[in-house]
Design a binder for these strands. Structure first.
Lengths: 140, 140
DNA sequence: GCGTGATTACTCGGATACAAGATGTCCGAGTTTGAGCGG
DNA sequence: CCGCTCAAACTCGGACATCTTGTATCCGAGTAATCACGC
């Protein structure tokens, strides 16, 4: 039970994208460079974010990624769901004679607390902390 | 990011033990039979619960497991920590120049919400739902 | 200068490789109880 | 009836086997912009 490294990459990536001027397009290479991770792997993660509608992609030369329009209040939960999936953290697969599993219910409620908090936390609130200095040297 | 099946087994097992008369000793075989899982694997799980001080074990003939004395207000969190470990769900391993990772802080707070809820939920409150009919046929 | 084709710089997707963790199984060792047996 | 031995019923721990998932790489395909070239 741990959040995957991919989720961490995704959160940081979204934060970088949010910190940039809107409509500005950035490539996988640049995003990977800032986090010092593999571009090819980050590409897979970005694809998930696109599928979930958090960012948009432009193919071809001068292509890259930018924030999806109509999506500037992205929550932590949005990103986590995009990467980890939306299935619940706990499910009792055991046979329970008549009624539902009481343990399952408690765990669902606990997850509800987590979800509530994460859905209220918006990534944009952290933009002030972002350091984009790696980009300025790039000059495109 | 999911709770392991072992955690589910552990929670159910603890509930069974709590539902029984205090000081009553029950074996791995019986506990495994109730959940229709492998006794040898459940044994590993029970060992973790013992190490964490939630239950006690008696070796030898007529041995088995029983609730640890001075431990009747066991929370969900106790069991989860015993099985999954106590390390936090999220840790940002990336290099952050000056300050700590803001994302990490949010995630820690979110986990705090989860922990708070799970530590307040006591297993004993669910004892009413437990069905011990499988045991009665055993007759020891 | 203007269209056309080739090159370049990107994303996208599938296939693959590798590592780690979860899930089980197997077996041998230790421990306690109780039954059986001999005196 | 007493004490000894031995078998049975347990837990405990390590060593495996297997499966799934996460992490990462590689390559070929598609796409859009730009460059080069011929007219």
């Amino acid at each position: 039970m741990k959040y995957s490294r991919a989720t961490n990459y995704a959160l940081h990536t979204m934060l970088y994208i949010l910190a940039m001027p809107p409509e500005k397009i950035i490539t996988v290479q640049q995003l990977a460079e800032m986090q010092e991770i593999s571009p090819t792997y980050l590409s897979k993660i970005l694809t998930k974010l696109v599928k979930f509608g958090l960012i948009e992609s432009n193919t071809g030369a001068n292509g890259g990624y930018k924030l999806s329009k109509s999506k500037n209040d992205i929550s932590f939960l949005d990103v986590i769901y995009a990467i980890e999936g939306t299935t619940s953290l706990f499910q009792c697969g055991l046979e329970h004679a008549r009624n539902n599993c009481a343990i399952q219910e408690v765990m669902m409620d606990a997850e509800g607390e987590l979800i509530k908090y994460l859905s209220e936390k918006k990534l944009v609130d952290l933009v002030g902390n972002v350091n984009l200095s790696v980009l300025s040297s790039g000059s495109r």
